[in-house]
Amino acid sequence: MSDTRVHKGLVIDAPWISLILAGQKDWEMRSTATSHRGWFGLIWKGLGCVYGVARLADVGDSLSPEQMVKTFEHHRIPEEMIRSGAVAKWNKPWHLVDVIRLPTPVRYRHPNGAVTWVELSEAVSVAIEEQLALQNSAPMPTDHADQEALSFQSERRTIGESVLTSGNLTHKHIYLRNFFDRFPKDAIGGSNKQQAATREITISWRNGAQVVTDLDGTKKLFRARGWIGSFFQHYDAQAGDRVVVEELAPYRYSVRLEK
């Protein structure tokens, strides 16, 4: 990647952004074209963070439903969604190349009214640049098997389990009260964002997806909750299922669901 800083971010919803970050999707389907070409940040909708960067190489012509069906390997939209008309207006492919996942997501402030492109502050641009430098300096595994081996070499311990209730599923949160004292005290804030903690934790949950958040010390919940609906949906969560929280390293955790 060149030394040019990333000053613009694109808001992308799940599951599409996770497919882009995993290298499984290189067309982002949009309803309109854009004049932008070059690097931009990949913003996970609802999570308040830039999760990676990519380069927009080109914007293609609008595709017919038949053309979209034939190019599934690029955009990953299932045929049934295409033929149902659910994505009819999102038929213009933005061609992405050189996708890079950041080692740690970078928080940004979402401006009022921004729906597609977001202008990133200088501080966020610098933080992204620093994350890219960290990634470039770190040794990378050569294949998926090596990645799996490295992930299991790290010390991890279960700090607690939370049994899901119908209220959790409805309101998209996870109770942490039974083991809340096992989180670092400086990552625990007050009841609102204005009383956020001085430190944040990173949560990993699926295919490397990460969330950066502090903890609400009043409600004893993860403060960032935009990802939890996707977590429940991915695992087909039901009342009575257990969410297991593991500590991977200081200020780094994973969550998984067990039936």
Results as ranks from 00 to 15, higher is better:
residue 136 N to F: 05
residue 75 H to C: 06
residue 151 S to D: 14
residue 110 H to W: 12
residue 177 R to A: 15
residue 101 R to E: 15
residue 102 L to A: 10
residue 33 A to V: 12
residue 156 R to A: 11
residue 174 I to P: 06
residue 236 D to C: 07
residue 26 D to A: 00
residue 216 D to L: 02
residue 148 E to D: 04
residue 34 T to C: 03
residue 86 A to M: 13
residue 258 E to N: 14
residue 13 D to I: 04
residue 179 F to M: 06
residue 75 H to T: 08
residue 52 G to P: 09
residue 189 G to F: 12
residue 205 W to M: 01
residue 86 A to P: 03
residue 197 A to V: 10
residue 134 L to E: 10
residue 211 V to K: 00
residue 66 E to F: 04
residue 9 G to L: 11
residue 254 S to P: 00
residue 225 R to Q: 14
residue 81 M to E: 15
residue 54 A to T: 07
residue 83 R to K: 12
residue 15 P to E: 06
residue 152 F to E: 15
residue 127 A to H: 11
residue 81 M to S: 15
residue 110 H to I: 10
residue 198 T to A: 13
residue 207 N to P: 05
residue 123 A to I: 08
residue 250 P to S: 10
residue 200 E to M: 02
residue 127 A to D: 15
residue 202 T to K: 01
residue 211 V to L: 03
residue 255 V to R: 02
residue 53 V to Y: 02
residue 246 E to A: 03
residue 26 D to G: 03
residue 213 T to M: 12
residue 80 E to F: 13
residue 144 H to S: 10
residue 2 S to L: 02
residue 227 W to P: 02
residue 183 F to T: 07
residue 45 K to D: 03
residue 47 L to E: 10
residue 156 R to K: 13
residue 150 L to S: 10
residue 70 K to E: 15
residue 98 D to H: 00
residue 13 D to G: 00
residue 217 G to T: 04
residue 138 A to I: 06
residue 230 S to V: 01
residue 146 D to P: 03
residue 160 G to Q: 12
residue 143 D to W: 09
residue 145 A to T: 13
residue 132 L to M: 10
residue 247 E to N: 00
residue 257 L to K: 06
residue 106 V to H: 00
residue 3 D to S: 12
residue 244 V to T: 07
residue 110 H to E: 14
residue 171 H to P: 04
residue 49 C to R: 09
residue 70 K to G: 12
residue 184 P to N: 13
residue 69 V to F: 01
residue 206 R to H: 14
residue 69 V to N: 02
residue 63 L to D: 09
residue 17 I to V: 13
residue 149 A to P: 08
residue 31 S to W: 01
residue 102 L to T: 08
residue 17 I to A: 00
residue 172 K to V: 07
residue 34 T to P: 00
residue 79 E to H: 03
residue 191 S to I: 03
residue 259 K to C: 06
residue 125 S to F: 03
residue 74 H to D: 09
residue 62 S to P: 05
residue 175 Y to P: 02
residue 7 H to W: 05
residue 12 I to M: 04
residue 44 W to E: 09
residue 87 V to F: 12
residue 66 E to C: 03
residue 102 L to H: 06
residue 28 E to A: 02
residue 183 F to G: 08
residue 155 E to D: 07
residue 64 S to Y: 02
residue 131 Q to M: 06
residue 124 V to L: 00
residue 123 A to D: 12
residue 111 P to M: 02
residue 87 V to K: 04
residue 183 F to W: 10
residue 169 L to C: 08
residue 113 G to L: 08
residue 140 M to T: 10
residue 56 L to P: 05
residue 116 T to P: 01
residue 155 E to K: 09
residue 118 V to Y: 03
residue 134 L to C: 06
residue 103 P to R: 14
residue 56 L to Q: 07
residue 180 F to Q: 00
residue 184 P to D: 12
residue 90 W to I: 05
residue 186 D to R: 07
residue 241 D to N: 11
residue 249 A to M: 04
